[in-house]
Design a binder for these strands. Structure first.
Length: 829
RNA sequence: GCGGGUGUGCCGGAGUGGUCAAACGGGACAGACUCAAAAUCUGUUAGCUUAGUGCUUACGAAGGUUCGAAUCCUUUCACCCGCACCA
């Protein structure tokens, strides 16, 4: 039979067009059960999609197609995270305006996305750089300001000299900028806008319980939020009380000094006149030291000249300023118990501060011969030197000591979080303008809602500093409160993560001009039922999005409080050299290139055959060749398809496969599903398949290879789209393990014949099989298969009780004696 | 330092108590087709052994639990990722 020519380029172009013009993937709210599948939207760059994108988005598409076939009303939208620094920087480099750059990049992305066969509802496309979109960023900001969740504060912030802007806590990785692995973040003192995410810390923590996310993702969020229970204790310094957070109130009698962070905003209040010079010298030394260097640095400090009173025993203890105390955790000040904390110990040793043991371990002596302790003892034990609490258990006495202090109004229980407020100001152009005005008379004044959006001006000069400060006409405005004409707009823009924190909601009602979205729409489609993205977003985007969702719920706009109930963290595909794909390494794979050579279907199939999707892997183009080979065979088979009568064996197998694959797809085990599809296909032969069963196979293959399956679906005589058909159902009754056992018998016989051939070093042979009577029929039916697979010239199947066998005529060496159930005797000649 | 993960045959990678010398793909080798090659198809691919068998070695390393371990436990090594002076 003539080989069918699998012209994938033509086929893919054809269906792309058909899907587009029939608007197959556009959805509306309906009575049907909804399912919201979402991939994290990309930020468009001129370099276009790379293989990593191709992979994640294909995972989303597979899931969306699967759920669609299962009968859900599937929302699967796409958009562009167009605002942000990378676009601004790339535009500057390319000497164009970010707006132009973004526009071009998006057009390029769209071309590639369509080529990949991703089934987006294009009518819902969202672009964060449209003022229609970021207007609502500003609206949310105003609402937060109204509720006291957006505020301005001066504090030490992380500054990236390359980005020329401040960064959020989440964007500093290992002391470096998240975008510049080689750039140390500097510490600056600036007045900046913050969002009070910490108000939701407890809820963000509790909410994790009910989410169907990987344990790893949840653990990382938990650690990031970092809840610790302890006490807040007040220390009196120069007549004023200063709070200090500790998880070990039981060691209060061992406090021999206090350390205040060198970055503490009220540090100078504590410094005595005599010590001013010393402290200033110390601060000068620290200045210009990057956060990274600070982490590596030895503990250092300077005496402030002030003394505090230990609230437990009234002892006078010195107050130091230190480089190792984090300014914005707790109160930026710590009580130091050198005997029971190794950092305090180190510090005390260095500056000759007394070390006072207040906890004795149960079963050993912590002292050295000279009465000194060699190192801090951080474990539990019984209290000593602690007044009325002596001999009590350190672990049990915390509560009591806190109560004791509480009575004196010098302490209370406190829960402290590691999570910091979200620094949202950026000193860059390509972001959402923060809708605030500075008025000489009224101070900081929010823009009125009716005046939104505050549109980014096109005319700015790029160069040093924030480009927005170069457009004076834009900056100058009327004060919304008093009408004074000398108002000045805020020139800081929002962190790009502001956009991505709620974009998923805009998809549910993308064109709404009156409202951020219609609550009915949002409540119908959202939350996201299956979110897909990389591990790098767990402590950034996903924390912020959860926070925004809870806030919008509090505004009464949503009846749920988590953005995504199920989250799949996909693995990273590395370049063929095993390194992370990057332009500078030159190991980037362009999907369009691969599509040209093998087709999108082959690429998609390859991407999921490579490995289990949650694991990191190394890209290997050989996989695409393998997938392409398989698809050519599939195409050939179904192009020449003549429906026959369904073989019950195949029927059993396909039903079993449907059951397994349904489960695999649901759980992202695509690599396994693909293997099962291949095995199923291998069992198809010229005449053992009817049209219905053929279609079931195509339907399952469809989620991976949408184009070729549409084409073959049509070739089978169907007029509708396979994309909109329905997922095959398992017919349990058709599954019969008998067939598998028979297959095994046949396979074993073939293996045995081949083995004997090998031992005898014979090639073409005449084979005689002596089977127990109940297996004779099976082996006779399969004799052609056995002949082919074993390369035998002639094959005779006898029953062991056949007269000719018994007489030895047909069994010269008595091999029939070896026959057992499932294992016929074999004679070769 | 803390937390999470990974380690399987020539390679990628399944498998989490027996049906495992271990799915599937790739590579290599052999055979068929061909004048030849590519493509395609078939087989082999730990070692020894054998008329279809049996044995040994093997799932990072070392121990242990068990009638039985790639799979469970302990220790250890290597690599990857996240957080990190958070009091």
């Amino acid at each position: 039979m003539a080989k069918a020519n699998y012209d994938f380029n033509k086929i893919e172009a054809k269906w792309m067009k058909k899907w587009d013009s029939a608007k197959v993937f556009e959805v509306k709210k309906s009575k049907k059960k909804k399912f919201y599948v979402l991939d994290m939207f990309p930020y468009p760059s001129a370099t276009g999609l790379h293989i990593g994108h191709a992979f994640v988005f294909s995972l989303g598409d597979i899931f969306a197609r699967f759920k669609r076939l299962q009968g859900y009303n599937v929302l699967y939208p796409i958009g562009y995270d167009a605002l942000g620094l990378p676009a601004e920087n790339a535009a500057i480099k390319a000497k164009t305006h970010p707006k132009e750059y973004t526009k071009k990049s998006i057009a390029n992305f769209m071309k590639q996305q369509k080529a990949m066969g991703w089934s987006y509802d294009w009518s819902r496309m969202v672009n964060t750089s449209d003022s229609d979109f970021y207007k609502w960023d500003q609206w949310i900001f105003l609402k937060m300001y109204e509720k006291g969740l957006a505020y301005r504060k001066k504090s030490s912030v992380n500054w990236c000299p390359k980005c020329q802007t401040v960064l959020a806590n989440e964007q500093v990785h290992d002391g470096k900028c998240w975008r510049h692995e080689d750039t140390n973040v500097e510490v600056k003192h600036l007045d900046q806008w913050y969002l009070k995410i910490t108000d939701y810390a407890q809820e963000l923590l509790d909410g994790l319980e009910k989410l169907n996310w990987s344990e790893n993702a949840k653990t990382r969020q938990r650690n990031w939020i970092g809840r610790s229970e302890g006490s807040e204790i007040l220390f009196e310094i120069n007549g004023k009380k200063w709070p200090v957070f500790t998880t070990r109130p039981d060691t209060i009698f061992g406090v021999t000094f206090l350390v205040v962070s060198a970055q503490h905003s009220e540090l100078m209040e504590l410094v005595s006149d005599e010590q001013k010079e010393e402290v200033k010298k110390f601060l000068k030394k620290l200045k210009g030291v990057s956060e990274k260097q600070m982490e590596d640095a030895e503990k250092e400090g300077v005496f402030t000249g002030s003394y505090a009173l230990n609230p437990a025993n009234g002892e006078k203890i010195p107050v130091y300023a230190g480089n190792f105390v984090v300014a914005d955790y707790g109160s930026g000040m710590v009580m130091a118990v050198p005997a029971h904390d190794k950092r305090d110990f180190e510090f005390a040793e260095k500056y000759g501060i007394p070390i006072k043991v207040v906890v004795e371990p149960k079963d050993y002596e912590i002292y050295e011969r000279n009465g000194q302790i060699p190192q801090a003892y951080e474990g539990e034990g019984s209290l000593v030197n602690s007044g009325e609490f002596n001999e009590m258990e350190s672990g049990k006495v915390r509560e009591e000591i806190t109560k004791f202090l509480e009575k004196k109004k010098l302490g209370k229980k406190k829960v402290q979080f590691r999570l910091r407020d979200w620094l949202i100001s950026r000193q860059r152009y390509w972001g959402t303008p923060i809708p605030m005005v500075y008025c000489d008379e009224c101070g900081v004044v929010p823009v009125e809602e009716k005046d939104l959006p505050i549109v980014l001006p096109d005319k700015v000069t790029f160069g040093k500093g924030n480009p927005l400060t170069t457009n004076e006409k834009w900056i100058k405005t009327k004060c919304p409160k008093c009408g004074n004409k000398n108002g000045k707009r805020e020139t800081d823009t929002m962190d790009t993560f502001a956009n991505s924190s709620w974009y998923y909601l805009r998809y549910t009602d993308p064109k709404n001009e009156k409202k951020i979205f219609n609550s009915d729409d949002a409540n119908y489609w959202a939350p996201i039922d299956q979110y897909i993205g990389g591990p790098e977003h767990i402590t950034m985007h996903l924390i912020y999005a959860r926070f925004y969702t809870k806030f919008l719920r509090d505004l009464g706009l949503l009846n749920f409080d988590e953005p995504a109930t199920r989250y799949f963290t996909q693995g990273i595909i590395h370049g063929s050299d095993g390194e992370k794909m990057s332009k500078s390494r030159g190991n980037v794979v362009e999907p369009l290139e691969t599509i040209k050579r093998f087709g999108a279907d082959s690429l998609r199939l390859a991407l999921v055959s490579l490995a289990s999707p949650e694991n990191d892997t190394v890209w290997d183009e050989k996989i695409v060749e393998g997938s392409s080979k398989f698809l050519r065979r599939v195409y050939d088979y179904f192009s020449n398809f003549n429906p026959g009568k369904i073989d019950p064996k195949i029927e059993s197998k396909i039903n079993k496969t449907i059951r397994e694959i349904s489960d695999n797809v649901e759980n992202f085990k695509h690599n396994l599903a693909v293997i099962k599809l291949r095995q199923l296909f291998d069992s198809f032969s010229d005449k053992n398949l009817d049209k219905k069963t053929a279609e079931k196979f195509l339907l399952m293959l469809h989620v991976y290879c949408p184009f070729i399956t549409e084409e073959l679906w049509e070739k089978l005589g169907n007029k509708n789209f396979i994309s909109l058909w329905s997922w095959p159902k398992v017919e349990e009754k058709k599954i019969n393990d008998k067939f598998e056992k028979e297959d095994e018998i046949v396979k074993k016989v073939v293996d045995d014949i081949n083995n004997i051939k090998k031992v005898l070093k014979k090639d073409k042979v005449k084979v005689s099989l002596y089977a127990i009577p109940s297996e004779v029929e099976l082996l006779r039916n399969e004799s052609e298969t056995i002949k082919t697979l074993s390369g035998s010239a002639v094959l005779e199947v006898y029953a062991v009780n056949d007269a000719k066998v018994k007489s030895g005529e047909a069994d010269p060496e008595g091999k029939a004696k070896k026959a057992k159930p499932g294992k016929p005797g074999i004679y070769l000649e």
